[in-house]
Design a protein around this nucleic acid. Sequence first.
DNA 1: CGCTTATGAATGAAGG
DNA 2: CCTTCATTCATAAGCG
Lengths: 167, 167
Amino acid sequence: MDQDGVSGFCMRKSSSSGSKYGRWNPTTEQLQLLTQLFKSGLRTPTIDQIQNISSQLSFYGKIQTKNVFYWFQNHKARERQKRRKLCVNHIIPTQNSINNTSTQSIGEMYQVSEPDSVVETLQLFPLNSSDRLRWHANECRDGDVMFSYTKGEGMEHPPLELRLSSL
Amino acid sequence: MDQDGVSGFCMRKSSSSGSKYGRWNPTTEQLQLLTQLFKSGLRTPTIDQIQNISSQLSFYGKIQTKNVFYWFQNHKARERQKRRKLCVNHIIPTQNSINNTSTQSIGEMYQVSEPDSVVETLQLFPLNSSDRLRWHANECRDGDVMFSYTKGEGMEHPPLELRLSSL
DNA sequence: CGCTTATGAATGAAGG
DNA sequence: CCTTCATTCATAAGCG
């Protein structure tokens, strides 16, 4: 992700389709697709879905199912983690602060209405009925918020020493 | 996620004054404190601690929680890495020593060639599951074999056709 | 100034 | 799911 909203940017020399070795590194197309699916609300794909996705992605480069699996896990986890760190006190006052509820299910309040092509794509993924899948599209935006914002205004001087209870 | 794409523009950090920075650069005080904490034994601060530390450090300059988070991660990782390298060219004859001590591209030379057939093979398996899935990664350094899944019954598989439109 | 090094940031992969 | 490790990428800093 980008860093702090300050433009940063880097182009990750994606080039790689052939990828060299070791760990999988997604091509731009693969990433695009994955991201799109995620944004559409897919968070924990079932095995079938993973396989399907993987198959499709393999067109763009070598990939294994576990990669897809991990990708979703990581992406989801980090989004959550991100949010967790993000909340708690300081939030930029200039914007509506995302008033998050607690640790999870923040996205519940976002009405994700995404009419774009994604929807149709999603329909093509067979979802098994008995699964506990959630399409509660929990995504608001990708690529801006990161952990927390430092509140730029005057802040009280903190005591100079930190007492970290652990260790 | 948002890194690739194109373009890259970076703002030149105008070395002086506030400037919009591309990445956080700890001030001496911040670094001191962080280092001290690290030396005190703090290695993986919890979210609370991170926030706490971050707050404290913000007194000395702009900082975000993620900075603290990364700082500890990196610091720990690099210490370990250093130790490991040291260990390698110190003792331990039992292991092939990685003799590339200069840069950090050690892994570069281990190219495990991976059979291309893997992908196809996988796609041919009608793996499927309709209930709770439990993945168990059987990782194989040689790039073969990947997941095994444990599941109850499940037999039929959903239609695999999916057409990812657009993109 | 260009190169090397140090390090912030990111993320794939596991482990538990 | 959550946390942690390892590796990689990009860039600021340090130096000759």
